[in-house]
Amino acid sequence: MTDPARGHSAATLVEAAGAPIDLDPEIRAAWPGARLVGRAFTVQGTGGDNLALHLAVTRAESGDVLVVDAGAAPHGHWGEVLTVAAQARGIAGLLIDGGVRDSAEMAALGFSVFSRRNAIRGTRKDFPGIFGRTVRVGGVLISPGDLIVGDADGVVAIPSAQVARVLDHADERVAQEQRHFERLRAGERTIDLYEFGAPYRQEV
């Protein structure tokens, strides 16, 4: 399957965007090595209630990333049961402003989850949620279809209308970095490479 992010890291993408598309750094991978890539299926939930997530799993399409505003609540909104259900539907992963649990089980299953925290407090099943609207997750407004990329360094959300431009700029940045690496390995200094200014470049 083609990687919609062209394999770029979250850090490269935020630099290429030239705009604040990075989420609050407290939104982190639930387990080491998780990588999240896919189009946003947005869910407006409420803290301490996970009925909306159960319904979202039935409505999202294969390859989608569930993007959930759960009010940053310290509850375990997602766990192993929903993970197995989501994998059966081909869902690419979960990004939630709230808590999750069963991180070891999610790691064993290879299902990528990025959340504000791990939490074991239980949830209600009362609020059915609202789907397909713009939500705020990690301080960033995310709309349906935006490209979500998460890795060890953080998460970005690229507006759908800007994806092609940002990815093209990311390609250019990576190519330039490779040229820089070659020059550094040949003995050049970073202060010369980036032209930090004559006083610094004269230092040995």
Rank of each mutant, 00 (worst) to 15 (best):
P32V: 07
T46M: 14
I91V: 01
E182A: 13
E203Q: 11
G129M: 00
G145R: 10
H8L: 04
G154C: 01
A16P: 05
G187Y: 13
P159C: 12
L55W: 11
A119T: 05
A164E: 15
G150E: 00
Y194P: 04
F41M: 07
R124I: 09
A157Q: 06
L36D: 08
H8S: 06
N50H: 12
P74I: 09
N50M: 06
A92W: 00
A70G: 15
T58D: 09
V204Y: 08
G18Y: 05
A56G: 10
E195G: 02
R89V: 03
R185C: 08
D22S: 14
G98T: 01
G7I: 05
A92F: 07
F41R: 07
D153H: 02
G129R: 00
G76E: 07
G98N: 03
A152C: 04
L167H: 12
Q162H: 11
D151M: 10
L193C: 15
G47M: 12
F111N: 00
F181K: 14
S115K: 03
H75W: 12
L55A: 13
G187P: 11
L36W: 08
I148K: 09
E177S: 08
Q178K: 15
V68D: 11
M106A: 05
M1W: 11
A157M: 14
F196N: 02
F127P: 06
G18H: 01
G138Y: 02
K125L: 15
A73P: 02
L36F: 07
R201I: 07
R185N: 13
R133E: 11
D146S: 07
D64S: 10
Y200A: 15
M106S: 04
D192E: 11
V81W: 03
G187K: 13
Q202R: 06
P144M: 04
V140I: 10
D22K: 13
V156I: 03
I142R: 02
G48E: 05
D171G: 00
Q44L: 14
P4V: 14
G145I: 09
F131G: 01
L95D: 01
T58I: 12
P32E: 09
A70C: 11
H54M: 12
A34Q: 09
E105F: 14
P25F: 02
Y200M: 15
A198M: 04
H169A: 15
Q162G: 07
T2W: 13
A17P: 06
A52V: 07
R39L: 09
V81I: 09
G197K: 00
Q162E: 14
